[in-house]
Design a protein around this nucleic acid. Sequence first.
DNA 1: CCGTGTCCACAGTTCATTTTT
DNA 2: CAAAAATGAACTGTGGACACG
Lengths: 372, 372
Amino acid sequence: MRLMSKELASHSFGANHKASIFCAVCGDTALGKHYGVNACNGCKGFFRRSIWKNRTYACRYMGNCGVAKEQRNACRACRLSTCLKVGMNPRAVQGDTMDTASTSSASPNMVSVESHPYTKSEEVECQTEITSTSSSVPTSPINRSDLPFASSASSICSVSSCSSLSTVYSNCFTTYPPPNTIVQKYDHFLATLTRIFERVDEYSPEPQPNTYNFNYAFYNPHLVCNRTRLTPTAERIATLQEVLQDFRRVFVLYTDVLSVLPEFHRLDESDRMVFAKSRFSSFYWWLTCCWTAKTGCPGVCYANGAYHPIEKSLQAFPDVNAARLADIALIFTSITNLKYLTSDNIELSDVLHVLQVDQLFSDAFEVHRPME
Amino acid sequence: MRLMSKELASHSFGANHKASIFCAVCGDTALGKHYGVNACNGCKGFFRRSIWKNRTYACRYMGNCGVAKEQRNACRACRLSTCLKVGMNPRAVQGDTMDTASTSSASPNMVSVESHPYTKSEEVECQTEITSTSSSVPTSPINRSDLPFASSASSICSVSSCSSLSTVYSNCFTTYPPPNTIVQKYDHFLATLTRIFERVDEYSPEPQPNTYNFNYAFYNPHLVCNRTRLTPTAERIATLQEVLQDFRRVFVLYTDVLSVLPEFHRLDESDRMVFAKSRFSSFYWWLTCCWTAKTGCPGVCYANGAYHPIEKSLQAFPDVNAARLADIALIFTSITNLKYLTSDNIELSDVLHVLQVDQLFSDAFEVHRPME
DNA sequence: CCGTGTCCACAGTTCATTTTT
DNA sequence: CAAAAATGAACTGTGGACACG
Ligand SMILES: [Zn+2]
Ligand SMILES: [Zn+2]
Ligand SMILES: [Zn+2]
Ligand SMILES: [Zn+2]
């Protein structure tokens, strides 16, 4: 079974392997992944230089300049913002090789480009950078590998992309003069997310199962489910009860994640619900796929240590109607596993491309969600 | 073999690398290539500014002012003209960097430098420009990579330089008040050349081989050879027959190229033939070298998919006399390959420096040309 | 192989100085 | 002579190619 999907992968994806790789930032041809996403040579270098020199740019327009190949050098602010939005990981930009190293004199790369002292005009100049402080040593990089994300550090960006909030922490940078470093913000966001994934309601009584509408449930997650520890270990066969419980747990997790996204708070009340509703199925799907791929279990992996096996004979609930949820998930899991064999994590584009199908998935959930 | 030449290249050319670089325009010391040719800082900036502001200058004299370092600022018209003649590529001058940027509103960098409305005197003043229209967005750059030229966009200039017509399209600019932009003319010329290289006589019968003198053959190319598609792919070993056929095909190509050169038409009848005769061997040699370098085949590459290998054991026609043509070509090909390993295309100066040797080559062709 | 960092040719940018208007 | 434009030396930034693990 595993071999089959591997074969499929090498065949179906092998053909258009070279052709289908484009820079996630500018659309130029990419030679591979850089800092977590497919990127061209230019965006790779631009991102590394920006991180190294700790640049902060300012957009002269509305912060939504085009960054296609021909225009990518037009606005550095929007290019860097896009780099972050599509998931480029500043932590993946490795040590400057001369940091604490070298002799002792001011390291020659620390060209503390004296930030333009606004001699010209008051407002920000065309392509000048706003601030540029000499970067310090990467301080204790947070590298929680116990996060449910598939692979290494870069995958944290994917969670953002996945729920297609996409902007996630990168939105901190479109605001104008924040002199904080990108890496600091990244670390902060990563720590926040980690805290959310590790959050446990210790001594609360488990709420009674009940049916609420999405809106009410979203603002009262404590009525839906306790925050149990997330243990996607695939230790046992899932019962239908466990599948539904997992669904509720992920829903609560989802509310927690959204609550820390600055962009989400910028939406007004009604928009928030529209947004939250439209993205939840995608979030659930993505998370399940990540866990499944991580454990490599032959089925669908859930957060509570259970899994729903592919083999019909092993399934705990052959109930034809209720099993629909888990069966649909199997489809996506297999697809994802396929991708995992070629590239090593899921990207924004991968998620977006299945949005139509995802709708089907969402419908399936709507059927089962507010039920016993 | 390949390695050896690489070594040779880096050694022999590395030494005099710095010393031998002079500006192709004014002779000042050049720090490297700019817009396709070796150029000094001054000529680099002058060319960029001229293209950006879309300048058109007028010469107060005969259009042949000196442009040496000390006089280069005396006549802008002749300086720009020289820039184009030596092969500076206006397409290599990048857009403003912020041009098509932002959303759709008129980009604020389009500083429409109001063209001088002739307020002063009627005749052209010393160093005034004639016209200066605000440049528009680079519109659909023609980038035919299927041209036989070795590398990218800038190489188109080399073909001009090579056949040492040199002026090629740049001559359009010595005429006085053409309000067209340089880039437009460049694109037009490039498109014309591309058309010529792609031209194919579909349903004409292949003419009978015959012997004509140069003059007659030049004005009756249809008697020499059909325009077959140029396919320098080096797929098979060339027979002597194919080498001669290729020679005829390139001759026809040569007549096509000359026919679209304005400067060629300005010559009177006898001068045209003198000119055409003197440049043909150079043209043939350059083209063959380009194809050979492009395919990387170990021998001499021809337009019809055949090649003449270096290895004697592989050669199809060990005939000692007739093989002379191909063998001489081998010398040049090897030289060119050497150059291709260091710089990425052949320049005018490279071609001119071997003119003496080229004469020998030309003689070789004179022997073999009008023969069965 | 893949994804790091490194290198460097050649783009654009800046600005003191000169030239033109 | 002052304002405006051009010049060009010195600089930063870009990105293709390559080496390394
Ligand atoms: Zn890119
Ligand atoms: Zn912008
Ligand atoms: Zn010069
Ligand atoms: Zn002149």
